[in-house]
Design a protein around this nucleic acid. Structure first.
Lengths: 98, 98
DNA sequence: GCAATACATCAGTTCTCGCTGATATCACAA
DNA sequence: TTGTGATATCAGCGAGAACTGATGTATTGC
């Protein structure tokens, strides 16, 4: 279901978190510091991202490291690319109105 | 701003409309029939999609034909692909906790 | 001209979802 | 073991977005 992935990516804070994690693995305290958002808020978003398979978490002492998983992003990129291809291929097709 | 494009794609009805338009150009009455949604609702969504440059509209008598524009979809697909690439490239990078 | 169809617009209602505040848990240090 | 810092969870609130209903505007057919 790429629609759920799209919904998760469409939030500014979640997008920012994923952008930060694309550069390096970070723990929650880093993400709170970088985004300026509250701890609760960041933690809630990370939960959603983890459940959707967009990030993976790795406990490290009292810290928790988060890493961006590329699989869902690639799936989505491919799907969007396919839709764009189809639009070009069928640009002349037109269903007639009765 | 791909975030606005993401937000528009994240709605089930809008996604369905774009999926239908990827196969062929359709007028509003077709989209109402195919989706089962109300005329007002479809028209409102088409307005948003048009303003965002995701579809283009062409008046044809009393009908209005809509066509899917691939540009924004490609941009988004490329952006997501780049993020996925970055995640793979920096998978070993890890910011230390103090 | 008149009725009907296709479509757009706007105000209002409903509902989803992001944010907050309070609380719980766990690890580490003194 | 007591305290502190890092993180997770949950209930409730509020802003925003989707959907509806009413209305307006063309265009076509009679």
């Amino acid at each position: 279901m790429p629609i759920e992935t799209l919904r998760l990516l469409a939030d500014p804070l979640r997008a920012q978190i994923l952008g930060l994690l694309a550069r390096e693995s970070l723990c929650t305290c880093h993400l709170i510091e970088e985004t300026g958002a509250s701890q609760t808020n960041v933690s809630n978003h990370l939960r959603l991202l983890r459940e959707a398979g967009l990030v993976s978490s790795e406990p490290c002492g009292r810290y928790t490291y988060y890493r961006l998983r590329p699989e869902r992003l690639r799936e989505l990129a491919d799907t969007l690319s396919d839709v764009a291809d189809a639009a070009v291929a069928n640009s002349e097709t037109k269903r007639p109105c009765p």
